[in-house]
Amino acid sequence: MLTVEKLRAFGANVEEGLGRCINNEQFYLRLAEKAIADPGFEKLMEAAEKGDLEQGFAISHALKGVTANLALTPLYDPLCEITELFRNKADADYVSLVSAVLAKRGELTKEN
């Protein structure tokens, strides 16, 4: 189960995220769980594997927005980088980059 402590340990800027969620811890955690379980992460990997840059951009852009609002910094930072690469249709190892994001997300999904 996600907790504020777990998020803080993960590296999220909990105060910032909570602030945006009108300092309602329960609400913040509910949204954070929703964000972590977002099927967009899996779809992002599919896009990366297919080399679908447009789709990759749309999904990473959306995930970036969500993680930004919740201040899930360890996910937000790499998503920013990936979004810009997709936007510029850069030649990059998207699969590795997305894998790193998924791995980071895994830290939050695994049960202690």
Binding site: R20, C21, I22, N24, F27, L31, V66, N69
Partner: peptide, 13 residues
């Protein structure tokens, strides 16, 4: 806003 999380944050605000 299509993203549930973003939408919910605005609604809460």
């Amino acid at each position: 806003e299509d993203e549930f999380v973003n939408r919910e944050i605005l609604v809460a605000m």
